[in-house]
Structure formats: C-alpha cells, structure tokens
Computed example of a mutant assay.
Amino acid sequence: MRRTTITALAGAALLLTGCGSQSGGDTGSGGEVSPSTSAHSSPGPSRGCSVHGQLTAADSGRTVCLSKGDEVRIVLDGTKARPWKPVTASGSALQAINAGFVLQPGDATAAYRAVAAGTVKLTSSRPLCAQPSSPGQVSCKGIQTWTITVRVS
C-alpha cells in the first residue's frame, strides 16, 4: 500500500472512533466530549475543544485538550531530503505508546496517552529546504518547527 493510502485509512478510522463519542452540536461547536481515544483540539483560546483524531504538520501551534486515558496521535509527513526529527514531549502528563504506523524515510510519527493532569509541549523540526546533494551547492539553514500544547485534565 502507498503511504498516503495507509495514512488516509488510519485517519478515517480515528475520526470514526471519535464521531460516536460526541454529544451536542457539530464538530467544533464547543460541545462536551466524553473521554475516548481521540484528541480534542482547541482552535483558539476562547473556544472549547473540538474532536480532532490525528495531528499533522498543519496543526502546529494548536492546543489539544485531553482527559486522563485519552490518546493523541501525530503523523508528520516528511521526505528523505527534508526529514522530521522524532517528536519529543516536555512534561510528565503524557506517556508514549506505540504509534502503530509504518514509517517512510523522513516521516515522524508518535502516539501518547494522557496519564496525569498537566501541560505538555510536543515538538519536532525539519529543514526548510533540501540539503545539498554535492559540495559547492547552495544550502539553506532555515528550520521549520512544529509545536503542540497538550492540556490534560
């Protein structure tokens, strides 16, 4: 199977798991969400958490709210020329678990379970441009950073 097919299937399964646990309005309505294996992302400081099954590079800067026992999964699609560094967590509110995804060169995947109340920063980074393939080529020293704040209650 191709990487995009595997990622799409995994994402669909995670989203379907989260759909059955929501009460109230549509996704993003700020309704209460019961504890499940899905993460809840807050699009802004004044809004409640909404269902969000999987985090990607596009989610950088978001705040994710979890209850004890909830899980959050991260899939950062990179390339061999622009690889993501492994995701790191600062804090003790999350416990690393098996991500369950096949890694392609340059990808970074991770999964965590909320085990205690607190706040954790998840981070990764990668080069902004491909590294030169031979000496004398122009190189780029820029770094793309990825950060998520996780609040566990």
Rank of each mutant, 00 (worst) to 15 (best):
K80D: 14
R82W: 03
T5P: 00
A99T: 04
A12N: 06
L122K: 14
V120K: 15
G20H: 08
L103Y: 11
S21F: 13
P83C: 05
A10P: 02
A111W: 12
L66Q: 07
Q104A: 07
L9E: 13
P105L: 10
G69S: 12
K68E: 15
A58P: 00
L94R: 05
T63G: 02
A13R: 14
R151H: 08
K141H: 06
I148P: 08
V64K: 08
D107K: 13
P35Y: 10
G53D: 10
G20N: 07
P43I: 09
R47Q: 03
L128Y: 02
I143R: 15
T145D: 06
R73P: 00
S134L: 11
V64D: 11
Q54D: 04
A13L: 12
T109G: 00
R62Y: 13
T17F: 02
T79C: 02
T56C: 02
R3A: 07
R151W: 01
G28K: 04
C19K: 07
G48D: 11
V150E: 12
T4M: 01
N98T: 15
R73C: 03
H52F: 02
S38R: 05
S38Y: 06
Q131F: 07
S125T: 11
A114M: 09
S38W: 07
A81L: 03
H52R: 09
R82H: 02
W84P: 02
R47W: 00
K141P: 00
V33R: 14
S38H: 14
L55N: 08
A10L: 12
A57K: 03
I74G: 05
D107S: 10
S50T: 13
S90I: 03
G11D: 08
P127W: 03
K121Y: 05
P83S: 07
T37E: 11
T149S: 15
H52G: 01
V72S: 12
S134V: 14
Q22Y: 00
C19H: 08
A13W: 03
C129S: 13
R126L: 02
H52Y: 04
K68N: 10
P86C: 10
S124Q: 06
C49E: 06
A13N: 04
K121S: 14
G25H: 00
K141L: 09
D77Q: 15
T119Q: 11
E32I: 08
I74Q: 08
M1A: 11
R3P: 02
K85W: 04
Q131P: 00
A10V: 12
V138E: 11
S41I: 10
P43R: 05
A108E: 03
P43S: 09
K141E: 07
G106P: 01
V115E: 11
R126W: 06
S134C: 06
T27G: 04
